[in-house]
C-alpha cells in the first residue's frame, strides 16, 4: 500500500514538473503575446494541479492536505481570470497585431 501511494504520488509530481517544463519552453519559444500567455497559463493551472495532487497523495489526508486543496481551488479560479484580463488589455491596446496573428471576425467589438 505504501509503495502504491509513493509511486502514484511520484508519478503525479513528475507529470506536473513535465507540464511546467513544457510551459516554460513555450513562453520562450512563442513570439506573440497571446500565444505566450497560453503557454504560461498551463503552468498555473495544470502544472500546479498535478504537483499539489502528488503532494496530497504523498502526505495523506490531514489538515495540510485540505490547505493544498484550497490552494488548488484558488489557483483554478484566479489564474484563468488573470490571464483573461491581461489578454483583454493586450487586445484593447494593440488591435492591428491581433488581426495579423489571429482570425478575427469582421464585426467583433473589443
Amino acid at each position: 500500500m505504501e509503495w502504491v501511494r509513493f509511486l502514484a504520488g511520484g508519478a503525479l509530481l513528475l507529470f506536473g514538473l513535465v507540464v511546467s517544463c513544457i510551459a516554460t519552453i513555450g513562453v520562450y519559444k512563442f513570439k506573440f503575446v497571446l500565444n505566450r500567455m497560453h503557454a504560461a497559463a498551463m503552468n498555473d493551472t495544470l502544472g500546479i494541479l498535478f504537483v499539489l495532487l502528488g503532494l496530497i497523495i504523498l502526505n495523506g489526508w490531514n489538515f495540510t492536505s485540505l490547505k493544498m486543496v484550497v490552494i488548488i481551488c484558488f489557483f483554478w479560479m484566479a489564474s484563468p481570470v488573470a490571464s483573461h484580463v491581461i489578454a483583454r488589455l493586450e487586445i484593447t491596446t494593440d488591435k492591428e497585431k491581433v488581426k495579423e496573428e489571429c482570425e478575427v471576425a469582421e464585426d467583433v467589438d473589443f
Binding site: 481570470v81 483573461h84 484580463v85 483583454r88 488589455l89 484593447t92 491596446t93
Partner: peptide, 10 residues
C-alpha cells in the same frame, strides 16, 4: 481608458 472595465468574469 484603455484598461478593460466592468469585466463580467473578473
Amino acid at each position: 481608458k484603455f484598461e478593460p472595465k466592468n469585466d463580467r468574469i473578473l
